[in-house]
Computed example of a mutant assay.
Amino acid sequence: MTAPGSFAAGTEDRVQGRAGMRRVSPMSRLLGARETGVFIAFLVLCAFLALTTDSFLTLSNLLNVGRQVSLLGIMAIGMTFVLISGEIDLSIGATYALSGLAAGMLITMGWNVAPAIAAGLCLGMLVGLVNGLLSTYGRLPSLIATLGMMSVIRGIALLMTDGQPVTVNVRNGADPGVLETFLALGQGRVADLVPMQLVFFILAALLGWALLSRTSFGFRIFAVGGSPKAARVSGIDVNAVKIWAFVVMGCLAAAAGILSMAFLPSGQAGRTGVGLELDVIAAVVVGGASLAGGSGSILGTVLGVLMIGVLRNGLVLSGVSPFTQEVMIGLVIIIAVAIDRWSIRCTRG
């Protein structure tokens, strides 16, 4: 039988130990964060490019990199929600194309900018809703459900456009004032300096961070991805959480597609957004999200997007051929994910 004094002493030791852990936890969290390795690799890459190229650190080039990764980043924010929930979405490239082309066609039909954009966003959210329903109540693996939806959506886009390119201009029926406003969303610059696409990416990242880190919905996303059974026992509607994750993904994929059409007001259903889903998933995984669900962060996703964008930009500035670029980027993704898996195993002992 344990003496009262011993019990009290043991309790005091545990309390002091916990207090010590609380005192060092911020630094421990920083050093142990999964984003730390990506951030260090990003800094090393930037330093290398700054030393080996003359134009990398110029303001114009950095802003250009920001614009180039913006659409990828917006979709990667949505994919973060889906991956953390334990699912995956392969239909985002097709959704990107369908929503952008739909918004462009509506503008050429005489619609104003706001209703045309709203229609495109609703279309993306509808796709996300269908994906969510198929993956939850339909009991289909999300990999299969969204792979099938990718073909369905691409086919709908082809039927909608009759396989012809969609070009948004005055000659095709767009109102000059409406067209100017629409193009400003993709081509404009804040203070004649910061690209509008980059502004939208920053806004999407901030909203995504707030939703994932500061709301009960974000908590439920992590709970569902970590253990659906435990989440269900805790009273969380697992199916509803996953469906909403897909809806967020569909909305952001649609937003990226509309911004793409506003930047380059021409697209074709059979080509626009093809293969984009692989780049998005790669960026999120490089940023530390787990394909098994339950882990990831908006900060990590942003770092993953920047890592891929800076790497592509650096290879171009270094004069590396496009074919070699694809090989090198693929290797970087494989190495980054392998290091991440290794670090997790070491942490778990």
Rank of each mutant, 00 (worst) to 15 (best):
V302I: 14
A157D: 06
V280L: 07
L90P: 04
F7S: 12
Q68L: 11
Q164Y: 14
C251T: 05
A76V: 02
G66F: 08
R139L: 03
M149C: 04
D162G: 15
A97Y: 00
R67H: 13
P4N: 07
A204R: 00
F48I: 12
K229N: 06
L51R: 01
A103C: 10
V130T: 01
G177K: 13
R189H: 15
V327I: 15
I333F: 00
A9R: 07
I74D: 11
S60Y: 14
M1L: 03
M75Y: 11
V302C: 12
G270E: 15
A191F: 14
L159H: 05
N172F: 15
Q68H: 14
F201N: 12
A283E: 06
S318F: 04
V24K: 13
G132F: 03
I74N: 08
E326V: 14
G66H: 14
I88P: 03
I236R: 04
G124K: 02
L317V: 12
S290F: 01
L31S: 04
N131Y: 04
L129Q: 01
R189W: 10
P195W: 15
G250L: 00
E35A: 09
T272W: 07
I88K: 03
R23P: 00
F201S: 13
I107H: 02
A50E: 04
G110S: 14
G37N: 00
E87K: 01
L129N: 00
I221F: 08
Q187K: 15
L185A: 12
L30W: 06
I298K: 05
V241E: 01
V168L: 06
R312Q: 14
A118I: 09
P195Q: 14
S297I: 03
T215K: 02
I40W: 07
G32A: 06
A119G: 01
L259H: 09
A184L: 13
M160L: 15
R154F: 06
M109I: 06
A184Y: 15
V327D: 09
V194C: 13
L291R: 08
N112L: 04
V337M: 09
M105D: 10
C251V: 02
I84G: 07
C46E: 08
G173W: 15
E12K: 08
M79T: 13
A184V: 09
L147E: 11
I334F: 09
I308R: 01
P195E: 13
P26Q: 09
L291T: 11
F56V: 02
G188N: 14
S318Q: 10
L72I: 14
G294T: 06
A338D: 12
M150A: 12
L185F: 10
A223P: 07
V233E: 05
R139D: 10
R67T: 15
A269C: 11
F48H: 07
A145H: 05
D89L: 07
R14H: 05
S142Y: 06
T2L: 03
S343D: 01
L212F: 06
S343Y: 04
G208T: 05
L30E: 02
E35I: 02
R154K: 15
A9D: 12
L134E: 05
A205R: 09
I74Q: 07
L259W: 05
I298C: 08
V241K: 01
G349S: 12
F39Y: 08
A97D: 08
P228H: 03
V24T: 15
Y137N: 11
G218R: 08
